[in-house]
Nucleic acid binder design. Structure first.
Lengths: 338, 338
DNA sequence: GCATCCCGTGAGAGCGCTCTCACTGCCTCG
DNA sequence: CGAGGCAGTGAGAGCGCTCTCACGGGATGC
């Protein structure tokens, strides 16, 4: 409850001895106003510690001045995945420059999703950055169809999607990782793939296959085993691969968590890393440098991607029509496993 | 950009063949409306997939229907402290029940703080839950003075603060921990304290002293060494304590991170836990059960405290005047270090 | 010296909603 | 059978802001 009713533009104008219109001009920073009037208004505003009423403002401008960063994940995952803090940092940085308030929304339940849709459609935010969209989740397209500016991280699986996105160069990164293994002398390179209901899973496998072919190695299904982006999944996949390809000497894991599982399985099998088998992961998660031995991995510029997502969203909000997807370059971080 | 202009109450009313007032009544769920009119309005609204314009609504109701959960921390700390996900979960749960949208705001820089104040004062949110307020940070009182309903977690250090808060029973919890050590046979019990610029540091030390006295042990300054709630701080403090009190056989660490440091230092000194020295922490962080050996600790009901914070904030927003602070009970979780 | 320009300003409409007030018509009651 | 009541409805004001439009007056141009 405001102690008294909050000061309005009207009261500022009255105190400054000008009309509401003039006061508005000054506060909007725009247009031609006499220095005298400007100063009077500014003083009045600060004396009353005036803050414009957002509701009134957005009623006419149809802008709220804030955007949502939406994470569709259980709360625990949100806090345990190293990806989110980095995206948040990047997006926050750019939005702060543009004087846009970022609000974070974690959607764990169907009910929360629904509420958020009403929230967004009601004009509470001018747009949304969706991170961690799974499979063919219709949420992004749904919001976009409702006229809400939306961008997302990661290429959508649905080819019909028109939502602009920012993605790491997963194919290129996987090629780099694979090439690195081959160049380090590996002759029997295998891969632990990500989930195939995500685009990222497909792309990292595709890069692996392409690079193999480029070096005259032949790809066959037995060289790839599906993981689920978890440590346990990586371990299980490695065990399966070892059974099928006992002489494997290089492993490309489609993310670092699985790479950690790979290292565990190799250690359990008594295979030295990098002496007997070389391993490369993907993501450059904090865990990568903390692993034993420290993991060679492919870094994606997540902070920059967060910035780019924010920039992109503002472009969509400003109605710049053809917002092209962005593919961010990856780079190899060489540590001890290769 | 909305594809077409969004449907308004006016257009719903027109389609339903009633006046705006009647349409409003139906959608507000209130008052006496004929079944026929009600049904017509409902159908029109759903056909147009009408969502009320929040700006217009809050302009008149002076309510936004959302509240902020504000974390004054660097982004990394926000993601690395196990406290936040739990508070968030609790608050989110209660707010969802009351149909209030929660927005999360992370304030890392002075600039972001300032922006948030304008954001809140502009009426974007109806109130704020502040977690992780440090020392005598004036932010809570500042917001409260500006007429923004505010509640906070943790008792403020400033005795003049009028901001309602939810705190764990830190004194009681510390007493429980200390009593437990004494009852397990410890004769020389020491404590690693939290930072003294936080109320929680004071209180956990106070509980330690009280319980010591209650058992006829005398407290002296050499039995307490200041830590900073970090693992490294806990280790350093333990080394200092060991130098001063070589025959110590019980350590109460004011949080689990420091307790982990205590365990490290004791291991380094070759002192068996719990054989030679018993250790109790505070918080029941995930790390506590993962430590070697698993840590006995004092649990605070953080999820419930999050709920309570949300409930409290809604009470303040609804203008229920005397909102009393809440002190949540703690409980001992016995594991292997005692 | 008179028409033209434009700078600084104020009046006023209107964004979409909520809420009060007044009106109509039907039902109830004396 | 007339007065009162009340359910259902509509008209309209107004929340605080932005933005267009029009207007007075001083400077400029030929």
């Amino acid at each position: 409850m405001p102690s008294a009713s909050a000061p309005t533009l009207e009261s500022v104008a009255a105190r400054a001895g000008v009309s509401r219109a003039t006061a508005g001009r000054v506060l909007a920073g725009s247009a031609r106003v006499s220095p005298a009037a400007r100063e009077a208004v500014l003083r009045a505003a600060s004396e009353l510690s005036y803050v414009p009423n957002q509701a009134a403002r957005s009623l006419v401008t149809r802008r709220s001045g804030s955007v949502a960063l939406v994470v569709v994940e259980p709360v625990e995952r949100f806090f345990n995945d190293s990806y989110f803090p980095l995206v948040l940092t990047g997006a926050q940085a750019l939005l702060a420059e543009r004087e846009v308030q970022l609000v974070l929304v974690v959607l764990s339940t169907a009910r929360e999703r629904e509420r958020f849709e009403r929230y967004a459609r009601g004009g509470h935010v001018d747009g949304a950055i969706l991170v961690s969209v799974h499979g063919r989740d219709p949420l992004p397209q749904h919001l976009a169809d409702a006229g809400i500016p939306v961008v997302m991280s990661g290429q959508p699986l649905d080819p019909a999607s028109t939502v602009p996105y920012v993605s790491a160069d997963n194919v290129g990164g996987a090629r780099t990782a694979t090439r690195h293994l081959i160049e380090r002398g590996c002759r029997r390179v295998v891969t632990v793939t990500g989930p195939m209901d995500m685009r990222v899973g497909h792309d990292r496998l595709a890069g692996f296959r392409e690079e193999l072919r480029a070096h005259g190695h032949r790809f066959s299904a037995k060289l790839a085993e599906g993981g689920d982006f978890t440590v346990a999944g990586g371990r299980a996949a490695t065990e399966a691969l070892l059974a099928r390809v006992p002489d494997l000497d290089g492993v490309f894991a489609a993310n670092d968590l699985m790479a950690a599982g790979v290292l565990q399985a190799l250690a359990a099998a008594g295979l030295a890393v990098p002496g007997r088998v070389r391993v490369v992961g993907f993501d450059d998660a904090p865990l990568a440098s903390a692993a034993t031995p420290p993991l060679t991995t492919v870094r994606q510029p997540v902070v920059e991607m967060g910035r780019e997502l924010a920039r992109m969203l503002l472009a969509v909000i400003d109605g710049e029509p053809p917002v092209a997807p962005v593919v961010a370059p990856t780079s190899l971080v060489q540590r001890a496993t290769s």
